[in-house]
Design a binder for these strands. Structure first.
Lengths: 70, 70
DNA sequence: TAAAAAAGTAATATATACTTGACAAATAGA
DNA sequence: TCTATTTGTCAAGTATATATTACTTTTTTA
């Protein structure tokens, strides 16, 4: 897994801290941090919650062209 | 969680069985079945693998308008 | 209408997402 | 430069996605 810079950028564009986004998405700060760093493979429901919090779609933030593994 | 009829339809459009899709996505038939029935909250990587297998995007298959819970 | 294939279901086991709490490192603001 | 905020990290615990095996029910097809 690689870093999710799209998410980091979308969060920055909304001027939200990791804590802010975590609260909005209903998870902990550590979970958001791990997702941005590419250490977790989040559930799609969490992805949707994150997308809604930062005003983006799944394709915007989680559709990378090169990721084949499960 | 509710049924994923978009996925079921996309699979049917490709004339794939749950087993076919499972093989293409690298998971078991039961996992695909559970996802279509809305019993699992799949990882985003698995969602991407499924999307690629049926020629759809994340927004096509996993972006429901009404899903607020994590 | 019978057999075959596909889909649904269930139990047990394992891997990992996610939590909690705590602390260190980095960044930003006074 | 000092302080507060934000981010990164780690260890231990809980919840759940996914695997495996096996069986039943439904659908397809010959």
């Amino acid at each position: 897994m690689s870093k999710n810079l799209n998410l980091k950028a979308a969060r920055a564009a909304k001027d939200m801290t990791q804590k802010d986004l975590a609260d909005a998405a209903g998870v902990t700060r550590q979970t958001i941090n791990a997702i941005e760093l590419g250490e977790y493979n989040p559930s799609v429901k969490l992805c949707v919650a994150i997308c809604r919090a930062v005003g983006k779609t799944l394709n915007d933030l989680f559709w990378e062209e090169n990721s084949n593994e499960k």
